[in-house]
Design a protein around this nucleic acid. Structure first.
Length: 571
RNA sequence: GACUGAUUAGCUCAGCAGGUAGAGCAUCUGCCUUUUAAGCAGAGGGUCCGGAGUUCGAGCCUCCGAUCAGUCACCA
């Protein structure tokens, strides 16, 4: 294992602590009675004794050692507080080890400690804790990035997205403001859950591992079940299972769920993502629009205390009601074309005229979707319901009560993107079967996202499903909107990343086994050979020169091997 | 997948017409009992992403490759 100088120093400190009888990873819990923010808010200059026997724990984030006194900053879950250490308080007797050795030499930034002491205000006016005793709770043997701040300006910020996402634990430690995004995300979910529970709807769990990935148009992740010897898929949606529960007699069911789609990754797409789907019996999509508006408004207020939310350089007003515009009207407004009653060929002509790329596998529904996506969607910045989608692109949606070419479906658009998708659910089993068969034709035409036919779902519908309204909403996207983050990676603790490229490193002992003296193995590592195979592929004469050169250059004072020695090692 | 840019010390980043690398913080050694991006004095630390080429000489130029970011394309 290759360690940096600082890692070696910390491991030595760890050893030194053990030799002094200090357990750097004690088993016992540490009782605390206050947090950093409570000290700051409760401290009263007239009554400092109110915060006398306090005890708190956290991570050391900075140290300023001044001989026999020192300051440090302790970070706990709530924030930071300054600590004041004085040698003669920590070590009242003759033995000053606990200050001079343990605190000054063997503690580092990043270590987790518990302290006991009392609150006071320093000469400089900062509320601090005068430490009377401290306990090491966990030693950090890897150095944290050091982020400094003065007058609100941040120095040496830890901003590299790759490192931040791969090592989110470090990100959270050194960029504690990131925590706020995630607490807001959880609050968002809790707000929705509270609202659903108030209505008496039931939170349920449905299968993630499915034999038929249904309920949406997307490519699934495929896996294999060994003992059944059959392909299985990770779910792309929960719709069909939740509707089965409505068939079964629940009036309202909802699920917050991870769905998986085997498609591209970018700022707004992660292969696994969270959606909330809810189905309510005896309602239609008009009711669901009211319900959705109320839900979004409640979330905005819960998170921000108001309905006007900053998003980049825009402000989004989440106060209900939101305008409701039919898709046909939206297309008419933004393109001038009236798509009512147009045939597939006529739609193709319109796409051509509008300079929209199409391919032959696209049916009527997809063509219209394409026109809307290209020409209309970006215009809807403020929350807007787009309603009454063409039948072809909504195979699970009930036909529109006034127009058989349309369906009773809405999407909620915010900031030019789809946020929620909902409809009056199709509960006519004959119609549903026909729609699935149309999907099958699309699939045969080359649309690899067309839906599979789920026979069991059809059987369920044949037993009768009450009229139902259903709605799905992307939780990650809602979180992005509500926390002003343009990237999905910023609202996921652990966004999907490519596996970390890790150079293969053979053990030192493997090199020694070749007959190479240990001190030369270090030199070989230093020269960049961390794999036996790479070393063996090297020209022995060149390797000999390289090693002798390293010996000289770094003044190692080793006895150079002969060329034959080197040949023997790698021969 | 395309284009553009990045990759140098543990971290954040400099570097020049091509002449064997610099700063701040961090680390180490001293000094300092109310400091705060503490201070002062000193020290160590680098396959300059990898490979090939041009050159007397490459962190810098050329080519190939890797990774990351942004934009676009694809995709809900």
């Amino acid at each position: 294992m290759h360690l940096s100088e600082q890692e070696i120093v910390r491991r030595k400190s760890l050893q030194a602590l053990r030799e002094l009888g200090v357990n750097p990873y004690p088993e016992a819990g540490y009782e605390t009675n206050v947090t950093s923010d409570e000290i700051l808010s409760r401290f009263d200059d007239d009554k400092p004794e109110a915060l006398k026997s306090i005890s708190l724990a956290g991570r050391i984030m900075s140290r300023r050692i001044m001989g026999n006194a020192s300051f440090a900053e302790l970070q706990d879950k709530a924030g930071r507080i300054q600590l004041y250490f004085r040698r003669d308080d920590i070590c009242p007797g003759e033995d000053k080890t606990k200050y001079n050795q343990i605190f000054k030499k063997y503690l580092d930034i990043g270590d987790i400690i518990g302290i006991k002491g009392y609150a006071f205000r320093t000469k400089m006016g900062e509320i601090s804790v005068h430490v009377e005793d401290y306990t090491i709770l966990s030693k950090a043997i890897r150095p944290l990035p050091i982020v400094k701040e003065k007058d609100g300006k941040t120095y040496d910020a830890f901003t590299d997205p790759d490192q931040r996402y791969r090592q989110r634990y470090v990100d959270l430690v050194v960029n504690p403001q990131i925590k706020d995004v995630f607490t807001k995300r959880t609050k968002l979910i809790n707000t929705m859950r509270d609202m659903f529970n108030e209505h008496g709807y039931l939170e349920v769990e449905t299968p993630i591992l499915q034999a038929i990935p249904g309920g949406a148009a997307a490519r699934p992740f495929a896996t294999h079940h060994n003992s059944l010897n059959m392909p299985m898929y990770l779910r792309i949606a929960n719709e069909l299972y939740l509707k089965r529960l409505i068939v079964g007699g629940f009036d309202g069911v909802y699920e917050f769920s991870k769905d998986f789609r085997n498609e591209g990754m970018d700022r707004t797409h992660n292969p696994e993502f969270t959606v909330m789907e809810i189905y309510v019996a005896y309602k239609d999509y008009h009711w669901m629009m009211d319900f959705t508006e109320e839900m979004i408004e409640r979330v905005a207020i819960a998170l921000h205390g108001k309905t006007l939310v900053q998003l980049g350089d825009k402000e989004i007003e989440f106060k209900r009601p939101y305008p409701r515009i039919t898709m046909t009207d939206a297309i008419k407004t933004h393109t001038g074309y009236d798509i009512t009653g147009k045939s597939e060929d006529e739609l193709r002509e319109i796409c051509k005229a509008l300079d929209i790329e199409i391919d032959p596998s696209m049916g009527k529904g997809k063509l219209i979707d394409e026109i809307f996506g290209e020409k209309c969607e970006p215009h809807y910045i403020q929350p807007t319901f787009i309603i009454d989608y063409p039948k072809e692109m909504s195979p699970l949606t009930k036909k529109h009560r006034d127009n058989p070419d349309l369906t009773e479906r809405f999407e909620l658009m915010v900031n030019g993107k789809e946020l929620a998708n909902a409809y009056t659910e199709l509960n006519d089993p004959i119609d549903q079967r026909e729609r699935f068969e149309e999907q099958l034709k699309l699939s045969q035409k080359g649309d690899d996202e067309a839906m599979f036919i789920d026979q069991d779902f059809l059987r369920a519908l044949e037993y009768g499903m009450p009229p139902t309204a259903g709605m799905g909403i992307g939780i990650d996207r809602l979180a992005m909107l509500m926390t002003n983050n343009p990237s999905i990676q910023d609202v996921l603790f652990f966004p999907q990343m490519k596996p970390e490229a890790k150079p293969k490193v053979d053990e030192k002992s493997d090199f020694v086994a070749l007959g190479i003296p240990e001190e030369w193995v270090d030199v070989i590592f230093k020269a960049g050979f961390t794999e036996i195979d790479a070393l063996k592929a090297e020209n022995p004469n060149k390797l000999h020169q390289t090693l002798c050169g390293m010996n000289k250059k770094h003044k190692l004072g080793l006895k150079n091997p002969t060329q034959d020695d080197v040949k023997d090692w790698i021969g």
